[in-house]
């Protein structure tokens, strides 16, 4: 799965970037459905579900990094808030799970409002401020035990329902649901990137004054990206919570949820839409199947090495490598 997922990208013919993107996306989608058709083992499906959860998180991280120009070391905050909010809504207020999940996302957005003051900080200061937020949320989830169950965690909250005869709490159903969410948010990302907002955000990174002087409110646009990124991360946190059916602060707000999306997105190429998704699947499977069997404790050392090597050798990730090996049409060449 892992190597076949990256193949069509390499083999796709040169063409306009839109056609190329659609072809790529459709190809990947078909590939993504293969495990269902061939009846992959529950273990394999479970791995793929987790990989797709990570893909959604990596997509949300890359959206903030690529469009918002911000590096986040604290996406665990949004992931955890989404998870807890959705689980608590479903358990305590009997909110239907499929409604609780997007509301969980909204709660993550709400929590990101507290980070707005951090937006006026430059690079490393923003990165570390958001890391501080993630820690604060983890500690809050532990301390507010009347609400969250404290360190012992939450165990009894509803799992995913059955919709149109498809039991979403079964592995196959969960897989389809998570995949659909990844596709949906990837499309949202594409639409934003191609919009005027996306164009303006692309300009802000290197020409802030020139962009603001024609009327672009850079802070507001970046704010929208932070809110959206938090929402997406929250939704995947909520999905994950209802799929595994168990939450505790050290898990939901684990540094893993901050670290893995960075590795996945940088590995796949965080300046593209597909990069983080492909990167997440490859990295997650590599970590779980290869790294863990080689080094049971401390397997993250291999991920660290992968990340360091990627930044040094191919800072644009897999997609950058693909672009280098298979250059696009002449038109794009002339522009480059």
């Amino acid at each position: 799965m892992s190597h076949s997922a990256s193949h069509p990208a390499a083999g796709s013919p040169a063409g306009s970037s839109t056609a190329r993107g659609i072809a790529l996306g459709a190809g990947l989608l078909v590939l993504a459905l293969v495990p269902l058709m061939v009846g992959a083992s529950p273990y394999m499906l479970g791995l793929l579900i987790s990989a797709l959860i990570l893909a959604g998180l990596a997509l949300s991280w890359a959206l903030l990094g690529n469009l918002g120009g911000m590096v986040s070391f604290g996406h665990a905050a949004f992931f955890g808030v989404g998870a807890y909010a959705s689980a608590l809504l479903a358990a305590r207020l009997n909110v239907p799970v499929l409604l609780a999940i997007p509301i969980g996302g909204l709660f993550a957005t709400l929590s990101s409002l507290a980070m707005l003051p951090a937006l006026r900080l430059s690079g490393p200061y923003f990165a570390l401020a958001i890391l501080a937020y993630a820690q604060i949320f983890r500690i809050l989830a532990t301390e507010l035990d009347w609400l969250t169950g404290g360190a012992a965690g939450l165990q009894r909250f509803p799992s995913l329902p059955t919709v149109f005869g498809l039991d979403l709490s079964e592995r196959a159903g969960s897989y389809v649901l998570v995949l659909a969410c990844v596709v949906l948010f990837a499309l949202v990302y594409v639409v934003i990137r191609r919009s005027h907002v996306g164009t303006a955000l692309r300009a802000i990174a290197e020409s802030e004054d020139a962009t603001r002087v024609v009327g672009v409110n850079a802070t507001v646009l970046k704010t929208w990206m932070l809110l959206l990124s938090a929402f997406i991360a929250g939704v995947f946190g909520a999905l994950n919570a209802h799929i595994i059916g168990f939450l505790e602060p050290d898990y939901a707000f684990s540094g893993i949820w901050s670290v893995m999306p960075i590795i996945a997105a940088v590995f796949g190429g965080y300046r593209t839409v597909l990069g983080p998704i492909v990167g997440a699947v490859v990295i997650y499977l590599f970590d779980q199947v290869v790294a863990k069997s080689l080094i049971p404790v401390g397997h993250q050392i291999l991920l660290g090495i992968v990340l360091a090597v990627m930044v040094l050798v191919a800072p644009n990730g897999l997609s950058g490598l693909v672009a280098r090996l298979f250059p696009r049409s002449e038109k794009h060449h002339a522009e480059a």
Partner: peptide, 28 residues
């Protein structure tokens, strides 16, 4: 010192990666 493009962002990610490597090396 080998990083040439987007130095601020890439150096953050690189040193972060080295931190992960060192932490896990010590763990091992």
């Amino acid at each position: 010192d080998r990083i040439k493009d987007h130095r601020e962002l890439n150096s953050l990610i690189l040193t972060f990666a080295i931190g992960i490597i060192l932490t896990n090396a010590i763990l091992l």
